[in-house]
Design a protein around this nucleic acid. Structure first.
Lengths: 174, 174
DNA sequence: TCTCCGGTGGGCAGAGTGCGCACCGTGTCG
DNA sequence: CGACACGGTGCGCACTCTGCCCACCGGAGA
Protein backbone atom coordinates (compact mmCIF):
# COMPACT_ATOMS: atom_id res chain seq x y z
CA UNK A 1 0.00 0.00 0.00
CA UNK A 2 1.28 3.45 -0.79
CA UNK A 3 0.18 7.02 -0.71
CA UNK A 4 -2.24 8.32 -3.27
CA UNK A 5 -0.40 8.59 -6.59
CA UNK A 6 -0.33 12.16 -7.77
CA UNK A 7 0.61 11.53 -11.36
CA UNK A 8 4.38 11.59 -11.28
CA UNK A 9 6.44 8.48 -11.61
CA UNK A 10 7.78 7.04 -8.37
CA UNK A 11 10.87 8.89 -7.25
CA UNK A 12 14.25 7.25 -7.08
CA UNK A 13 14.03 7.09 -3.32
CA UNK A 14 10.71 5.30 -3.46
CA UNK A 15 12.21 2.66 -5.66
CA UNK A 16 15.26 2.23 -3.46
CA UNK A 17 15.67 -1.32 -2.34
CA UNK A 18 14.29 -1.57 1.14
CA UNK A 19 17.04 -2.72 3.41
CA UNK A 20 15.53 -5.34 5.65
CA UNK A 21 16.08 -4.76 9.31
CA UNK A 22 18.37 -7.10 11.17
CA UNK A 23 18.02 -7.91 14.85
CA UNK A 24 20.33 -5.08 15.87
CA UNK A 25 18.26 -2.57 13.93
CA UNK A 26 15.16 -3.86 15.65
CA UNK A 27 16.81 -3.61 19.05
CA UNK A 28 17.75 -0.02 18.40
CA UNK A 29 14.25 0.87 17.22
CA UNK A 30 12.74 -0.95 20.15
CA UNK A 31 14.87 0.94 22.63
CA UNK A 32 13.94 4.12 20.83
CA UNK A 33 10.29 3.18 21.02
CA UNK A 34 10.54 2.77 24.77
CA UNK A 35 12.45 6.01 25.24
CA UNK A 36 12.10 8.26 22.21
CA UNK A 37 14.11 10.99 23.89
CA UNK A 38 17.13 8.77 24.28
CA UNK A 39 20.35 10.14 22.85
CA UNK A 40 22.61 8.13 20.60
CA UNK A 41 25.02 7.68 23.48
CA UNK A 42 22.28 6.46 25.81
CA UNK A 43 21.14 3.92 23.23
CA UNK A 44 24.70 2.75 22.69
CA UNK A 45 25.44 2.13 26.35
CA UNK A 46 22.04 0.56 26.90
CA UNK A 47 22.44 -1.86 24.01
CA UNK A 48 26.10 -2.54 24.61
CA UNK A 49 27.16 -1.11 21.27
CA UNK A 50 29.60 1.57 20.25
CA UNK A 51 28.23 5.05 19.77
CA UNK A 52 29.49 5.10 16.19
CA UNK A 53 27.67 1.88 15.43
CA UNK A 54 24.36 3.18 16.70
CA UNK A 55 24.99 6.46 14.94
CA UNK A 56 25.68 4.79 11.61
CA UNK A 57 22.64 2.54 11.88
CA UNK A 58 20.34 5.38 12.82
CA UNK A 59 21.55 7.31 9.79
CA UNK A 60 20.91 4.31 7.57
CA UNK A 61 17.49 3.68 9.08
CA UNK A 62 16.52 7.26 8.46
CA UNK A 63 17.78 7.30 4.90
CA UNK A 64 16.00 4.00 4.26
CA UNK A 65 12.80 5.49 5.59
CA UNK A 66 12.44 2.82 8.25
CA UNK A 67 12.70 5.51 10.90
CA UNK A 68 10.32 8.22 9.82
CA UNK A 69 11.51 11.72 10.30
CA UNK A 70 8.05 13.05 11.01
CA UNK A 71 6.27 11.92 14.10
CA UNK A 72 2.74 12.25 15.30
CA UNK A 73 3.36 13.75 18.66
CA UNK A 74 0.44 16.13 19.03
CA UNK A 75 -2.49 14.83 21.02
CA UNK A 76 -5.83 15.77 19.41
CA UNK A 77 -7.27 16.07 22.92
CA UNK A 78 -5.12 19.12 23.48
CA UNK A 79 -6.84 20.71 20.50
CA UNK A 80 -10.17 20.10 22.17
CA UNK A 81 -10.99 17.15 19.93
CA UNK A 82 -11.88 14.52 22.48
CA UNK A 83 -14.12 12.57 20.15
CA UNK A 84 -12.71 10.04 17.71
CA UNK A 85 -14.84 8.45 15.03
CA UNK A 86 -14.56 6.34 11.92
CA UNK A 87 -16.61 6.89 8.81
CA UNK A 88 -16.97 4.29 6.11
CA UNK A 89 -17.80 6.06 2.89
CA UNK A 90 -19.45 4.73 -0.23
CA UNK A 91 -18.58 6.43 -3.48
CA UNK A 92 -20.64 6.53 -6.64
CA UNK A 93 -18.97 4.10 -8.99
CA UNK A 94 -19.02 6.30 -12.05
CA UNK A 95 -16.54 8.91 -10.94
CA UNK A 96 -13.05 8.44 -9.61
CA UNK A 97 -12.02 9.12 -6.06
CA UNK A 98 -9.79 12.14 -6.77
CA UNK A 99 -12.55 14.64 -6.19
CA UNK A 100 -13.64 13.00 -2.98
CA UNK A 101 -10.04 12.74 -1.82
CA UNK A 102 -9.44 16.43 -2.35
CA UNK A 103 -12.66 17.39 -0.62
CA UNK A 104 -11.91 15.19 2.36
CA UNK A 105 -8.35 16.47 2.58
CA UNK A 106 -9.78 19.98 2.85
CA UNK A 107 -11.57 19.10 6.09
CA UNK A 108 -9.14 19.60 8.99
CA UNK A 109 -11.00 17.18 11.26
CA UNK A 110 -10.44 14.36 8.79
CA UNK A 111 -7.08 13.11 10.04
CA UNK A 112 -6.68 10.02 7.85
CA UNK A 113 -8.37 8.46 4.84
CA UNK A 114 -7.71 5.06 3.33
CA UNK A 115 -9.20 3.44 0.27
CA UNK A 116 -10.30 -0.06 1.19
CA UNK A 117 -11.77 -3.20 -0.24
CA UNK A 118 -15.18 -4.35 0.89
CA UNK A 119 -18.59 -2.76 1.11
CA UNK A 120 -17.28 0.73 1.66
CA UNK A 121 -14.80 2.47 -0.58
CA UNK A 122 -13.12 4.76 1.93
CA UNK A 123 -12.38 4.63 5.61
CA UNK A 124 -11.92 8.01 7.28
CA UNK A 125 -10.61 8.69 10.76
CA UNK A 126 -12.20 11.83 12.14
CA UNK A 127 -11.75 13.85 15.32
CA UNK A 128 -14.39 16.17 16.73
CA UNK A 129 -15.11 18.38 19.71
CA UNK A 130 -18.42 16.71 20.53
CA UNK A 131 -21.30 14.95 18.86
CA UNK A 132 -22.74 18.16 17.46
CA UNK A 133 -19.36 18.89 15.91
CA UNK A 134 -19.25 15.36 14.55
CA UNK A 135 -22.65 15.90 12.96
CA UNK A 136 -21.36 19.07 11.29
CA UNK A 137 -18.35 17.21 9.94
CA UNK A 138 -20.55 14.38 8.69
CA UNK A 139 -22.60 16.87 6.72
CA UNK A 140 -19.38 18.29 5.35
CA UNK A 141 -18.12 14.88 4.34
CA UNK A 142 -21.37 14.14 2.55
CA UNK A 143 -20.89 17.20 0.36
CA UNK A 144 -17.68 15.73 -1.02
CA UNK A 145 -18.16 14.86 -4.71
CA UNK A 146 -18.98 11.21 -5.24
CA UNK A 147 -19.68 10.44 -1.59
CA UNK A 148 -23.05 8.73 -1.52
CA UNK A 149 -23.27 7.31 1.94
CA UNK A 150 -21.43 7.70 5.22
CA UNK A 151 -21.64 5.30 8.11
CA UNK A 152 -20.14 6.61 11.32
CA UNK A 153 -19.03 4.75 14.40
CA UNK A 154 -17.66 6.49 17.43
CA UNK A 155 -14.61 5.19 19.23
CA UNK A 156 -15.43 4.52 22.86
CA UNK A 157 -12.25 3.14 24.32
CA UNK A 158 -8.70 2.66 23.11
CA UNK A 159 -8.39 -1.08 23.74
CA UNK A 160 -4.92 -1.34 22.23
CA UNK A 161 -3.20 2.00 21.64
CA UNK A 162 -1.26 2.35 18.40
CA UNK A 163 1.95 0.41 18.75
CA UNK A 164 4.70 -1.36 16.85
CA UNK A 165 6.79 -2.56 19.76
CA UNK A 166 5.61 -6.20 19.65
CA UNK A 167 6.60 -6.54 16.01
CA UNK A 168 9.95 -4.93 16.75
CA UNK A 169 10.47 -7.23 19.72
CA UNK A 170 9.75 -10.21 17.52
CA UNK A 171 12.32 -9.04 15.00
CA UNK A 172 14.85 -8.23 17.71
CA UNK A 173 14.56 -11.71 19.15
CA UNK A 174 14.50 -13.60 15.86
CA UNK B 1 -12.21 8.59 24.74
CA UNK B 2 -9.42 7.16 26.82
CA UNK B 3 -7.29 4.11 27.05
CA UNK B 4 -8.73 0.92 28.39
CA UNK B 5 -9.24 1.31 32.11
CA UNK B 6 -7.10 -1.14 34.01
CA UNK B 7 -8.77 -0.84 37.37
CA UNK B 8 -6.86 1.97 39.04
CA UNK B 9 -8.32 5.38 39.56
CA UNK B 10 -7.22 8.04 37.09
CA UNK B 11 -3.81 9.38 37.99
CA UNK B 12 -3.29 12.93 39.08
CA UNK B 13 -1.74 13.80 35.74
CA UNK B 14 -4.77 12.49 33.90
CA UNK B 15 -6.99 14.75 35.93
CA UNK B 16 -4.80 17.77 35.41
CA UNK B 17 -6.66 20.62 33.83
CA UNK B 18 -5.91 20.58 30.15
CA UNK B 19 -4.37 23.87 29.24
CA UNK B 20 -5.96 24.94 25.99
CA UNK B 21 -3.49 25.81 23.30
CA UNK B 22 -3.19 29.39 22.22
CA UNK B 23 -2.20 30.49 18.73
CA UNK B 24 1.49 30.62 19.66
CA UNK B 25 1.39 27.07 20.95
CA UNK B 26 -0.23 25.99 17.72
CA UNK B 27 2.39 27.83 15.66
CA UNK B 28 5.16 26.07 17.55
CA UNK B 29 3.53 22.66 17.12
CA UNK B 30 2.89 23.36 13.47
CA UNK B 31 6.50 24.29 12.84
CA UNK B 32 7.51 21.19 14.71
CA UNK B 33 5.13 19.14 12.59
CA UNK B 34 6.77 20.42 9.43
CA UNK B 35 10.28 19.87 10.74
CA UNK B 36 10.28 17.49 13.70
CA UNK B 37 14.06 17.59 13.90
CA UNK B 38 14.09 21.33 14.46
CA UNK B 39 15.94 22.50 17.54
CA UNK B 40 14.48 24.94 20.02
CA UNK B 41 16.72 27.64 18.60
CA UNK B 42 15.65 26.92 15.03
CA UNK B 43 12.00 27.14 16.04
CA UNK B 44 12.61 30.39 17.87
CA UNK B 45 14.31 32.12 14.98
CA UNK B 46 11.78 30.74 12.52
CA UNK B 47 8.81 31.95 14.53
CA UNK B 48 10.38 35.21 15.58
CA UNK B 49 10.31 34.34 19.25
CA UNK B 50 12.96 34.21 21.92
CA UNK B 51 14.58 30.89 22.58
CA UNK B 52 13.51 31.01 26.20
CA UNK B 53 9.90 31.53 25.18
CA UNK B 54 9.86 28.54 22.88
CA UNK B 55 11.71 26.53 25.48
CA UNK B 56 9.22 27.34 28.23
CA UNK B 57 6.24 26.58 26.00
CA UNK B 58 7.66 23.29 24.83
CA UNK B 59 8.18 22.27 28.43
CA UNK B 60 4.61 23.20 29.28
CA UNK B 61 3.22 21.42 26.23
CA UNK B 62 5.08 18.29 27.17
CA UNK B 63 4.00 18.38 30.79
CA UNK B 64 0.42 19.02 29.67
CA UNK B 65 0.61 16.02 27.41
CA UNK B 66 -0.23 18.03 24.32
CA UNK B 67 3.14 17.11 22.88
CA UNK B 68 3.48 13.39 23.34
CA UNK B 69 6.84 12.14 24.34
CA UNK B 70 6.54 8.93 22.40
CA UNK B 71 6.23 9.03 18.67
CA UNK B 72 5.33 6.47 16.07
CA UNK B 73 8.30 6.76 13.82
CA UNK B 74 8.82 3.21 12.63
CA UNK B 75 7.43 2.35 9.22
CA UNK B 76 5.75 -1.09 9.20
CA UNK B 77 6.94 -1.47 5.61
CA UNK B 78 10.49 -1.71 6.87
CA UNK B 79 9.42 -4.70 8.93
CA UNK B 80 8.15 -6.35 5.78
CA UNK B 81 4.52 -5.64 6.60
CA UNK B 82 3.38 -4.01 3.40
CA UNK B 83 -0.24 -4.97 3.86
CA UNK B 84 -2.57 -2.89 6.01
CA UNK B 85 -6.05 -4.09 6.89
CA UNK B 86 -8.93 -3.25 9.16
CA UNK B 87 -11.01 -5.84 10.94
CA UNK B 88 -14.38 -5.09 12.45
CA UNK B 89 -15.00 -7.59 15.19
CA UNK B 90 -18.28 -8.70 16.74
CA UNK B 91 -18.16 -9.91 20.31
CA UNK B 92 -20.59 -12.24 22.02
CA UNK B 93 -22.68 -10.04 24.25
CA UNK B 94 -22.52 -12.21 27.32
CA UNK B 95 -18.89 -11.79 28.20
CA UNK B 96 -16.92 -8.60 28.61
CA UNK B 97 -14.23 -7.43 26.25
CA UNK B 98 -11.28 -7.90 28.61
CA UNK B 99 -10.49 -11.38 27.39
CA UNK B 100 -10.70 -10.37 23.77
CA UNK B 101 -8.60 -7.30 24.45
CA UNK B 102 -5.83 -9.32 26.04
CA UNK B 103 -5.87 -11.89 23.28
CA UNK B 104 -5.71 -9.22 20.60
CA UNK B 105 -2.93 -7.38 22.40
CA UNK B 106 -0.93 -10.60 22.31
CA UNK B 107 -0.90 -10.59 18.51
CA UNK B 108 2.02 -8.43 17.33
CA UNK B 109 0.44 -7.72 13.96
CA UNK B 110 -2.54 -6.09 15.65
CA UNK B 111 -1.26 -2.55 15.90
CA UNK B 112 -4.37 -0.79 17.22
CA UNK B 113 -7.76 -1.75 18.60
CA UNK B 114 -10.66 0.55 19.39
CA UNK B 115 -14.02 -0.22 20.89
CA UNK B 116 -16.68 1.43 18.78
CA UNK B 117 -20.37 2.03 18.54
CA UNK B 118 -22.32 0.50 15.70
CA UNK B 119 -22.71 -2.96 14.27
CA UNK B 120 -19.26 -4.08 15.23
CA UNK B 121 -17.84 -3.91 18.72
CA UNK B 122 -14.17 -3.55 17.93
CA UNK B 123 -12.14 -2.06 15.13
CA UNK B 124 -8.65 -3.49 14.73
CA UNK B 125 -5.85 -2.15 12.58
CA UNK B 126 -3.66 -4.97 11.38
CA UNK B 127 -0.45 -5.18 9.36
CA UNK B 128 0.64 -8.26 7.46
CA UNK B 129 3.33 -9.49 5.11
CA UNK B 130 0.90 -10.67 2.45
CA UNK B 131 -2.58 -12.04 2.07
CA UNK B 132 -1.59 -15.47 3.33
CA UNK B 133 -0.15 -13.84 6.43
CA UNK B 134 -3.34 -11.83 6.80
CA UNK B 135 -5.34 -15.05 6.66
CA UNK B 136 -3.18 -16.51 9.42
CA UNK B 137 -3.75 -13.44 11.56
CA UNK B 138 -7.47 -13.55 10.91
CA UNK B 139 -7.59 -17.12 12.18
CA UNK B 140 -5.63 -15.99 15.21
CA UNK B 141 -8.01 -13.12 15.87
CA UNK B 142 -10.98 -15.45 15.65
CA UNK B 143 -9.53 -17.56 18.45
CA UNK B 144 -9.72 -14.58 20.82
CA UNK B 145 -12.33 -15.27 23.52
CA UNK B 146 -15.67 -13.67 22.72
CA UNK B 147 -14.85 -12.82 19.13
CA UNK B 148 -17.69 -14.18 17.05
CA UNK B 149 -17.18 -12.61 13.68
CA UNK B 150 -14.45 -10.74 11.87
CA UNK B 151 -14.95 -8.69 8.75
CA UNK B 152 -11.73 -7.68 7.06
CA UNK B 153 -11.10 -4.94 4.55
CA UNK B 154 -7.70 -4.33 3.05
CA UNK B 155 -6.32 -0.84 2.67
CA UNK B 156 -5.46 -0.16 -0.95
CA UNK B 157 -4.23 3.40 -0.99
CA UNK B 158 -3.44 6.02 1.61
CA UNK B 159 -5.73 8.76 0.35
CA UNK B 160 -4.97 11.13 3.22
CA UNK B 161 -1.97 10.12 5.34
CA UNK B 162 -2.33 10.55 9.09
CA UNK B 163 -2.02 14.24 9.86
CA UNK B 164 -2.88 16.94 12.34
CA UNK B 165 -1.36 19.92 10.59
CA UNK B 166 -4.64 21.34 9.25
CA UNK B 167 -6.15 21.45 12.73
CA UNK B 168 -3.01 23.07 14.07
CA UNK B 169 -3.01 25.58 11.24
CA UNK B 170 -6.61 26.45 12.04
CA UNK B 171 -5.69 27.03 15.67
CA UNK B 172 -2.59 28.99 14.76
CA UNK B 173 -4.59 31.32 12.56
CA UNK B 174 -7.59 31.71 14.87
C1' DT C 1 -0.13 52.77 41.68
C1' DC C 2 1.58 48.24 42.72
C1' DT C 3 2.04 43.56 41.56
C1' DC C 4 2.03 39.59 38.81
C1' DC C 5 3.14 37.27 34.71
C1' DG C 6 4.84 36.16 30.31
C1' DG C 7 8.19 37.42 26.97
C1' DT C 8 12.99 38.89 26.21
C1' DG C 9 18.12 39.12 26.19
C1' DG C 10 22.48 37.63 27.93
C1' DG C 11 25.40 34.34 29.82
C1' DC C 12 27.40 29.85 31.17
C1' DA C 13 28.58 24.87 32.11
C1' DG C 14 27.78 20.58 30.41
C1' DA C 15 26.08 17.18 27.29
C1' DG C 16 25.56 15.52 22.84
C1' DT C 17 26.41 15.59 17.86
C1' DG C 18 28.79 15.09 13.56
C1' DC C 19 32.75 13.73 11.73
C1' DG C 20 37.28 12.29 11.00
C1' DC C 21 40.75 8.74 11.83
C1' DA C 22 42.99 4.25 12.66
C1' DC C 23 42.43 -0.55 13.93
C1' DC C 24 40.56 -5.13 13.64
C1' DG C 25 37.90 -9.42 12.63
C1' DT C 26 35.14 -11.63 9.13
C1' DG C 27 33.77 -12.95 4.79
C1' DT C 28 34.35 -12.86 -0.24
C1' DC C 29 36.61 -13.33 -4.44
C1' DG C 30 40.18 -13.68 -7.85
C1' DC D 1 46.38 -17.96 -0.15
C1' DG D 2 46.44 -12.95 -0.34
C1' DA D 3 43.81 -8.71 -1.32
C1' DC D 4 40.04 -6.35 -0.34
C1' DA D 5 35.62 -4.58 1.26
C1' DC D 6 32.74 -4.00 5.13
C1' DG D 7 30.96 -3.29 9.57
C1' DG D 8 32.01 -2.60 14.37
C1' DT D 9 35.09 -0.27 17.66
C1' DG D 10 37.72 3.27 20.29
C1' DC D 11 39.52 7.92 20.40
C1' DG D 12 39.46 12.73 19.79
C1' DC D 13 37.94 17.35 18.45
C1' DA D 14 35.09 21.35 17.12
C1' DC D 15 30.71 22.82 17.29
C1' DT D 16 25.86 23.18 18.56
C1' DC D 17 22.35 22.87 21.56
C1' DT D 18 20.41 22.37 26.02
C1' DG D 19 19.01 23.48 30.57
C1' DC D 20 19.16 26.83 33.69
C1' DC D 21 20.48 30.86 35.72
C1' DC D 22 19.52 36.20 36.23
C1' DA D 23 17.80 40.92 35.22
C1' DC D 24 14.69 43.73 32.60
C1' DC D 25 10.41 45.19 30.50
C1' DG D 26 5.54 46.02 29.36
C1' DG D 27 0.70 44.98 29.76
C1' DA D 28 -3.25 43.31 32.65
C1' DG D 29 -5.53 43.28 36.71
C1' DA D 30 -6.22 44.28 41.78
Amino acid sequence: MRTLPTGEAPTESELRTVHTLDATDARILLALDEDPAASTMALATRLGLARNTVHARLRRLESDGALQQHSHRVDPHSLGRTLLAFMTLSLSQSQGSEGAAAALAAIPEVVEVLATTGDADLLARVVAVDTADLYRITELVLTAPGVERASTSIALVEVVPMRLAPLLAQRAAG
